[in-house]
Computed example of a mutant assay.
Amino acid sequence: MSYNNLPVHLKPCFLYMGRYGEDEDIVISDLIQLSVAEGFVKPINGKCLEDVAKEYIYELLDRNLLVVGIHNYSLKMHDLVRDLCLREAQKLKFLCVLEEHGIPQDIQSQRCIVGRLSEEKYPTQLLQSLESASLLRSFTLGPSVRKKRPTSLLYNFRLLRVGYVEQDYEEILPWLVNLRFLDVYVVDEDPLPSSIYFLWNLWRLLLHNVGKDYVCEIWKMPQLRHVGTDLREGTLDGAYCLPDTSFSYEEDMVLENLQTLSHVKNLKFGEVVLKRIPNIKTLKLYYKTKVDTSREHTSSSEESSEAEDSSEEEEDFSEGGGGGDT
């Protein structure tokens, strides 16, 4: 088991696995999108980048560097392999994991930083060191510290590709022009700032804490490939997400890159909408309808029902890949 024997194209993908905790389930769909957003995946023979990323994962499975998790749509990494991964990643200043043993050396030159400290464990000295990490491409902190970090921390990360924003996003997002993978934790169901529509490099947008029927005009972001919400925290309003009305400049409404659209409510799904998402692969729609119960009762009542229309198939790596014990 040697890192040096890995093909060049697999090395950054392997090192990136260090961002996951010990025994943590690695959701395959997230890993694929992250690998593409980080720029680890290169196009091959006209294949879409997500398919190439999937091939990379198969190769890591065949080499027993990853194993299939309890669920076929998740992966795991053995402890010894993870130790090797972290050791090589830190040596190459590729990835730094913040744990309870002081401030790592050369934190200013790291490519990816992952925080695993508990609440109240981010001293001023560490936050000041993080502010100088201007080369950072990926920045993840635990939920307990997101609201505690100073807003100024993100202003310096002009090269950031993967980011998670929970507060002051109206001020922060205009500075993060290189974002490709973005999770936004909406506060009090406030609307997204108009600046988000100018993030021309953004590929993946996931919204949290949006409540019911949140307005997000994704048709203004033609470069998006994956859009959705955490279903436990709300849905998107279909009337604004993809309007079914005709526009004077209809060609500007076509989202040719969009592959995933999840948790949209009451979308008027007709021919006009379908033409605007010609390459969609995963579509999850929810509807609220009136149900006629007059046959069973003397009066009719209104009930809420949900229907899901999805072409999604969970990535299944139980066959065709590796996954043996290391």
Rank of each mutant, 00 (worst) to 15 (best):
K275C: 06
G270Y: 01
D252F: 02
A89V: 01
E315N: 08
E308F: 09
H78Y: 05
V291L: 10
A89M: 01
M77I: 02
L6Y: 09
L49T: 14
T140N: 11
I57H: 12
L86I: 07
S144P: 00
S311H: 12
R204H: 03
L261Q: 09
L154S: 11
G69A: 05
L202E: 12
C48D: 13
D25R: 03
C96N: 05
L274Y: 11
D30S: 10
I280L: 09
C48P: 03
L255K: 01
Y16Q: 11
F40T: 05
T245Y: 03
R161F: 01
K93E: 06
A53K: 11
H101V: 07
K290Y: 12
I44R: 10
E119C: 00
G18Y: 01
S195A: 15
S318A: 15
H226G: 09
E99Q: 10
E306H: 15
L66A: 08
T245S: 02
M1H: 03
D190H: 06
G39M: 00
D213H: 01
S118D: 05
R161K: 07
I103W: 08
S299H: 14
L84V: 03
D168T: 15
G39R: 00
P43L: 15
E256I: 00
L231P: 14
V264K: 02
P123I: 03
L60Y: 13
I103H: 05
K93I: 01
Y169P: 07
T140C: 10
G46S: 15
G69N: 07
E315I: 15
I26C: 08
L242A: 03
A37Y: 00
E217Y: 05
V227E: 06
D30C: 09
I28G: 08
K93H: 09
I196E: 07
L285Y: 08
E171D: 15
H78N: 05
V210P: 02
